[in-house]
Nucleic acid binder design. Structure first.
Length: 877
RNA sequence: GGACGCUUAGCUCAGUUGGUUAGAGCACCUGCCUUACAAGCAGGGGGUCACUGGUUCGAGUCCAGUAGUGUCCACCA
């Protein structure tokens, strides 16, 4: 090794940016259509590129990046499709407001007006740090490049999809009750409405029956809508109320008379037995209105104010009107009573304004025919959710789905490609403005003012990003994609819609697996939100601890689908682990001599065989777990192996050889340490890419671990079961000696002399050096029989050996007796349990043989140990 | 109202088809600046796995019920 290696004593993540640039320069993240490799396509939810990365995104990114790197190293052509589309960017109000203010734009078709380009150009100014943040997190995706190309494709796909849906009769325009946000002045889909409990009242008041001295009492939570009532409904089977059917009642505060209709919708025995019907402002009432041919009278306008149909109340805000209506009813003596009432009120998920149900002309996607194949795809396991329980949520939604309202009255978004003939009003749906009206021959058209729901374009993401509607090579190669990674909060918005869109336009599922992870909460378990102000900027964490530390802390201890809390303590622990890896690597690298040959040694010693056997198991388990998307388990296993087995034991055990004056021995140790370290670095690379890359580049001739390395594989040659077992015994012995020393209060610097009686003498002779190095033993004398020892002694008993320590070296006899008595109790308990199991006929008859043998062996060992301990106690007495 | 989770050490959480003495991090106690690492090393204490019952040779793990808690969906005026 020629290069001068310098490593700081403490890990410092400042090299991260340099490593990132190296990856970009060498195009490490590019995926190509490659017939020799199997594609593995990963999708991610759309982060808002002009906004800030939050912990949820950081988790998304980390999970996906781990999978991408793992798959790349495993020989796949791994591509990930980042969902940065106009949909997400359009939600960034700052950008669109800038356009409004500085350019005077009032209508923006984001697919065609260069919206994306300008948004990207402005992202720096407007705090849009997301790309910077994603880069710093180590995201293996060229964001700036992807976003531009995808923007183009996305627009084409949207037009194509809309026209195809329409031609198949799957899109229609019509009057329906929709959720309306008076603040945003737009329609909302059902999924965009959040319900929260509010304290309100239930108002009871009377509708006088026309021509009779009678009245019907109704109850409502929204008195102001009575101005739009067009009927009162009672149940025809209700004996008390049925008599009113066909009669008219006077609608107070108006000059209208409205009919009483009979309908099952009104539940017998519930409330007053009669329901006011307001078809324009309640979905159930609207349906009922259709059944009874009732007129639809809107009384609330788009801004939440009472309109001209509200008579004297016109112009009032709907809540002011509510008070006025109640007061006026009271004046007329029609108000019966007011009861406090808690009920759920729909709120706009974006602005929080109370949502009004209003009837309006909107565009819809007919869901019934689209949902059926989408349900089938999951039932038939063409798509699988991980964890599986989320399939139920999906089915529940899909099976009860209503038509999807896709028009929005926002002024930015994809404009609906519907054109109306100025002459005859004919509707033409086409990718571009038609020249001639097919009905009247007119040549002037105007385009529908509405734009599409942002999720309409997002639903096309799996193929629009790959070039659809063109039949590109990428589309053929990468579609269907392999796995979608997202949080459970987005199943309805996005996942479900991608599934039916993919089936409709590509005739195939968009992905075969949906990996659902939880959301990141704050340290108190609260959802991170802007209004609470408890969100944590990942960039601050990265500044403090480094990106690898953040990634590792997000990846450790998470179970698929479960929420996780963010605490600095976790990140600190991850950082400490990285520091440990750094120092272990530093130690190994520092010891690589100029002429050392790092090729794998042809002859292995016991410790080598032990670590290789352990490493082998780790490789197997980590690979299996990553393939199962058990990222948390994989990370935890690597943490444990690296720290405990490699650092605490193997490195320590290799020191005698490493410091040996025999050059060959030193070289052997260095080669083995390096080999194991390299395997560890490869396994850890997906989790902590920066530091592994940095360390690797310090000693490996060819630089990049990401580019040059294959994922480690299980090697049968290294399944050294016997050595593994011996060394586990040795570790046990060393721990027992240390334990005794600590309990006896032996100073750490004090070397003890020891007599050793071994079960496997050959092995113990070779291992004496480890007792010296790791257990503070000064000199080891082997004995065949305890009688050979002339001093008084006490013993440390384990399965592979008894170690006799001369009493002169120990301090407290009484304590030693206590310790031995405790151990005897332990051994006795073990014997009792094993005997119990083995005398249990059921166990012996039904348990697997391996387990029975295990138990027998355990019993023998424990009995042997007990005997030795009892002897020892005798000695001490 | 419907569905789905969760309850394991003081705190935050792992625990993959049932099978050694139920694990980790943080916190705590004791002793160490041992020539990679004090962001460290060695040792230690701490758990009736919410409760009750069942299946089984064997249950933290499977089944049923109870209690507490959380999320999603629907929403009856």
């Amino acid at each position: 090794m020629e290069k001068e290696i310098q490593m700081e004593k403490t890990y410092n993540p400042e090299f991260e940016q340099r490593i990132y640039n190296f990856w970009m320069k060498n195009k490490c993240f590019e995926a190509h259509v490659n017939p020799d490799k199997e594609p593995f396509t990963i999708m991610m939810p759309p982060p808002n590129i002009t906004g800030q990365l939050h912990m949820g995104h950081a988790l998304d990114q980390t999970v996906q990046d781990i999978l991408t790197r793992f798959k790349r190293m495993s020989g796949y052509e791994a591509l990930w499709l980042p969902g940065t589309d106009h949909a997400s960017i359009a939600t960034e109000v700052k950008i669109v407001e800038k356009m409004k203010n500085e350019e005077g734009v009032t209508k923006m078709d984001v697919g065609r007006d260069g919206f994306m380009e300008r948004a990207w150009a402005w992202k720096e100014q407007y705090g849009g740090r997301i790309v910077e943040q994603l880069k710093r997190l180590g995201s293996s995706c060229d964001w700036s490049r992807e976003a531009f190309t995808m923007d183009q494709n996305c627009s084409n796909a949207v037009l194509d999809a809309f026209v195809k849906y329409y031609n198949k009769g799957l899109i229609y325009r019509g009057d329906r009750i929709i959720n309306w946000c008076p603040h945003c002045k737009t329609a909302l889909s059902d999924a965009e409405v959040e319900y929260n409990e509010q304290q309100s009242n239930l108002w009871y008041y009377r509708y006088p029956v026309v021509g009779e001295d009678d009245y019907i009492t109704i109850a409502t939570t929204r008195p102001e809508t009575m101005l739009g009532d067009t009927a009162v409904a009672v149940n025809p089977k209700d004996e008390k109320m049925a008599k009113y059917i066909g009669k008219m009642v006077k609608l107070p505060l108006t000059d209208r008379e409205i009919p009483v209709v009979g309908d099952d919708y009104c539940e017998i025995g519930f409330g007053t037995g009669a329901v006011k019907i307001t078809p324009a402002h309640d979905p159930n009432d609207f349906e009922l209105g259709l059944r009874h041919n009732l007129p639809v009278i809107r009384v609330i306008d788009d801004g939440g104010l009472m309109n001209e149909n509200a008579g004297a109340y016109q112009g009032m805000d709907r809540l002011t009107c509510r008070k006025a209506v109640v007061a006026d009813l009271e004046k007329l003596g029609l108000l019966e009573k007011i009861e406090p009432y808690a009920h759920n009120v729909g709120e706009c998920y974006r602005c929080g304004e109370t949502v009004e149900a209003v009837v309006s002309k909107q565009w819809f996607v007919k869901m019934k025919d689209l949902a059926a194949p989408a349900i089938k795809a999951v039932k038939s396991k063409k798509i699988e959710f991980v964890p599986k329980r989320f399939e139920k949520i999906y089915f529940n939604w899909m099976e009860n789905i209503k038509d999807w309202c896709i028009s929005r009255q926002l002024w930015w978004g994809h404009r609906i490609p519907a054109y109306y003939c100025d002459q005859c009003g004919e509707t033409v749906v086409a990718k571009s403005m038609p020249e001639v009206c097919p009905k009247c021959g007119g040549t002037h058209f105007h385009q529908d003012e509405d734009v599409l729901d942002t999720w309409f374009s997002s639903a096309l993401w799996p193929f629009s990003t790959l070039g659809y509607p063109r039949k590109t090579k990428s589309l053929g190669y990468f579609y269907p994609t392999s796995v979608l990674v997202t949080g459970y909060d987005i199943i309805f918005f996005w996942v479900a819609r991608m599934i039916f869109s993919g089936l409709e336009f590509m005739c195939d599922v968009p992905f075969s697996e949906v990996l659902i992870h939880g959301i990141v909460r704050d340290s108190q378990g609260r959802k991170m939100s802007k209004s609470l102000g408890n969100g944590i900027d990942p960039l601050l964490i990265i500044d403090k601890y480094g990106a690898d530390a953040l990634r590792f802390s997000l990846a450790t201890g998470i179970a698929p689908g479960s929420d996780t809390r963010y605490t600095d303590a976790k990140t600190e622990s991850a950082r400490n682990f990285i520091n440990k890896l750094w120092n272990a690597s530093r130690f190994v690298i520092m010891n690589i001599g100029k002429d050392d040959d790092l090729t794998f040694p042809s002859k292995l010693n016991g410790a080598d065989k032990w670590i290789l056997a352990r490493l082998n198991d780790v490789i197997k388990e980590v690979t299996i777990n990553l393939n199962k998307y058990e990222i948390g388990l994989a990370a935890a296993r690597l943490y444990d192996f690296t720290w405990t087995e490699y650092c605490d034991w193997y490195i320590e055990m290799s020191k005698p050889l490493l410091y040996s004056k025999d050059k060959k021995e030193h070289n052997h140790a260095v080669a083995m340490l390096t080999y194991t370290l390299t395997e560890i670095l490869k396994l850890l690379h997906p989790f902590i890419p920066y530091i592994t890359e940095e360390i690797y580049s310090k000693y490996a001739e060819k630089g990049s671990i990401l580019m040059k390395s294959d994922w480690p594989s299980y090697n049968k040659r290294f399944a050294f079961r016997k050595e593994e077992k011996n060394f586990e015994g040795l570790r046990e012995l060393i721990v027992a000696i240390r334990n005794t020393r600590a309990e006896m209060g032996v100073a750490p610097s004090k070397r003890l002399n020891a007599y050793v009686k071994a079960t496997d003498k050959k092995f113990m002779e070779k291992s004496a050096q480890y007792l010296e190095k790791l257990a503070g033993i000064g000199s080891v004398t082997f004995v065949e029989d305890k009688s050979e020892i002339t001093e008084r002694w006490t013993a440390i008993v384990t399965n592979i050996a008894e170690v006799m320590i001369p009493m002169g070296d120990l301090i407290d006899f009484e304590k030693e007796r206590e310790r031995i008595t405790k151990e005897i109790a332990q051994a006795e308990a073990e014997i009792k349990k094993a005997k119990g199991l083995l005398s249990n006929q059921g166990f012996v008859a039904k348990a697997p043989q391996k387990l029975i043998d295990n138990e027998k062996e355990k019993l023998l060992r424990a009995e042997d140990r007990l005997q030795k301990l009892q002897d020892k106690l005798q000695e001490l007495a």
